[in-house]
């Protein structure tokens, strides 16, 4: 599986996302530009200009009509995917670390950074899926994280709950309507930041990645840890693959320490683990900086990773990837 190198960004990638059909990849980087690419050949479809600072996050709605971004210029913006038109800008006191649409695309969530005088929070807006419509400036919900700031967050199935990962290694479950804290569970090592939270396709479970060098598979409903994937490097991202029961983990030596170590040392590899057996299956090398985000094609035919080195690498899985089965899985499949 020879990867396609997307070299359109000038600085470190922060997030990459597939749309629901998997034909477009959106990438954001610290160079202030949002890029859209065709996933099958790596051709650039377009860019979205307007942000005044490093971008931290991007998400696309389920119909690939609207695109949300957030960054260090303290704004969260909504774009029309097709035209690149800026539809709405929400201004905040601090930067936006994470945006995510609800499963139906009618709500948008943003995680705001904590800064002196401002607590970290999770804000929710109602979204009109029509690109011509005026979007509201009114928050439908605001959750203030006074214990430990949220670093990542997302909507559960039917947007019933909001799940957030925190700087102190815990995961919180909030009521999706009232914002009430339902449950808080120590999922990772204390004070080891949760760096990523990605959903299984049906959002009944999710995977978290943490600086404590592990990724965990957690049940949405109870926050019970189902599986744990230990590695030997701090993790920045973790994704669940559809079709095959794998998870992909990405990370590497912290960006600030990288210059002092060789690429081999940095462990800049995407690691594949079997989701159920928790065993490492393989690694994909290529980046020469830590992997900041890994995203999986919604149909499970490939994945892409965005690195601190400024490249997006798009991989299409080969046949052996789909053919590989553990003996017990084969037995199960033949039943």
């Amino acid at each position: 599986m020879r990867p396609i190198l997307l070299s359109g960004h000038e600085r470190a990638l922060t997030q990459v996302k597939y749309n629901a059909d998997g034909d477009i990849i959106f990438s954001v980087s610290k160079d202030h530009v949002v890029c859209a690419w065709f996933s099958h050949n790596g051709e650039r479809l377009g860019t979205y200009h307007g942000h005044q600072g490093a971008l931290w996050t991007v998400d696309v709605d389920p119909t690939s009509t609207l695109l949300a971004t957030g960054g260090a210029d303290n704004t969260m913006r909504l774009w029309e995917v097709k035209t690149g038109k800026l539809l709405k800008t929400w201004d905040f006191e601090t930067s936006i670390k994470r945006v995510e649409f609800s499963p139906d695309g009618r709500q948008l969530l943003g995680v705001t950074e904590k800064r002196s005088g401002h607590l970290g929070s999770i804000v929710v807006y109602e979204i009109d899926p029509d690109p011509q419509a005026e979007q509201t400036s009114e928050q439908s919900l605001r959750i203030v994280c006074d214990e430990s700031k949220a670093t990542v967050a997302g909507f559960s199935y039917l947007a019933q709950m909001i799940i957030a990962g925190h700087e102190d290694g815990t995961v919180s479950q909030y009521d999706g309507k009232t914002g009430e804290l339902l449950y808080n569970a120590p999922v990772h090592e204390p004070d080891m930041q949760i760096t990523d939270l990605q959903w299984a396709p049906d959002r009944t479970y999710f995977i978290t990645a943490s600086k404590d060098k592990t990724a965990k598979l957690v049940v949405t409903e109870s926050l019970e840890v189902l599986k744990s994937y230990p590695t030997d490097t701090p993790l920045n991202s973790a994704a669940i693959t559809p079709v095959k029961d794998y998870v992909i983990l990405g990370g590497g030596q912290a960006a600030m320490d990288v210059t002092t170590t060789s690429a081999r040392q940095g462990k800049f590899e995407a690691r594949f683990y079997h989701k159920v057996f928790m065993e490492e299956i393989g690694r994909v090398r290529g980046h020469f900086g830590p992997l900041n985000y890994v995203a999986v094609h919604p149909q499970g035919t490939g994945y892409c990773s965005g690195g601190e080195d400024g490249y997006v690498r798009v991989h299409h899985f080969d046949k052996p990837y789909f053919d590989f089965l553990y003996e017990v899985e084969r037995e199960q499949a033949n039943l």
Binding site: A20, P62, T63, P103, D104, G105, Y157, L158, W199, P201, D202, R203, T204, E221, P242, P298
Partner: peptide, 18 residues
């Protein structure tokens, strides 16, 4: 999956596709 069916979560059962 049973739980999602009971709740009528069609989008989720469809793998997130609207």
């Amino acid at each position: 999956i049973e739980m999602l069916k009971e709740m009528g979560a069609e989008i989720e059962l469809n793998g997130g596709k609207v």
